[in-house]
Design a protein around this nucleic acid. Sequence first.
DNA 1: AGCTCATGGCGAG
DNA 2: TCGCCCTGAGCTG
Length: 269
Amino acid sequence: MPEGHTIHRLAQDYAERFQGTMPRLSSPQGKFSDAAALLDRAELTRTEAHGKHLFLGFRDSDWIHIHLGLFGKVNFGPAPAPPPTDTVRLRLADATSYVDLRGPTTCALITPTEKQAIHDRLGPDPLREDADPAAAYARVSRSRTTVAALLMDQKIIAGVGNVYRAEVLFRRGIDPYRTGRDITPGEWDAVWADLAELMREGVRLGRIDTVRPEHTPEAMGRPPRVDDHGGEVYVYRRATQPCHVCGTGIRTADLAARNLFWCPTCQKP
DNA sequence: AGCTCATGGCGAG
DNA sequence: TCGCCCTGAGCTG
């Protein structure tokens, strides 16, 4: 379940196992059979991530565009690959390993032109070298929309999802309902820098950890936290529980069909 | 067995 | 803003 860090990690993992090899491609589910047949035993030449979009490059100019959506999952394993279940959209397999893709919103064969169009409609990605935070701020600072909604808008900044949005706003002490035009350049710089650091750590660890050392359960004398999404966070899915910093009950609300979480004390208007 | 919910995003109105 | 698409886990009964 994917925010940008997951996708960048997947780009690395696909490359580590298959780059330079000519894997078998198949679509046991059937929805990607034609393209899989076309690229069967073609060389995987490179992989790339931009925000939540994953690109697998074959030969010189064939790309598979993958977007996991909310439900998509990727599972790697060692050869021999087990018989696939009927929900596997795409399997890559070679002599040493296999990888199964299930439930993606998108899995499509695209041209370099179509790939470029996807890059063009995405905002800068804090995990990419070519990212320009000023381009994002130019749009944020002109908008009357809430900063919480802007952070989820992939045209403005690519790769941030519901967890990073809630956590970075908490860490910077920013009320989620402030508007974009109310965010100062200094605040945006700090949000961007924080996201870049948190997401890089997310790629490395494969999970979202946002709690500073001084606020961990051990440091605060609290019992160790058990959470079903795996990471240590300040506010995400902690509605009504006490804030790790000030003890105020964490609040939650619907914002653009997603659950928003924040501390009304630590995040001042 | 059926319901609800989840780190996402699209198109219609 | 709503409905819809993709899947699976964790409930309830």
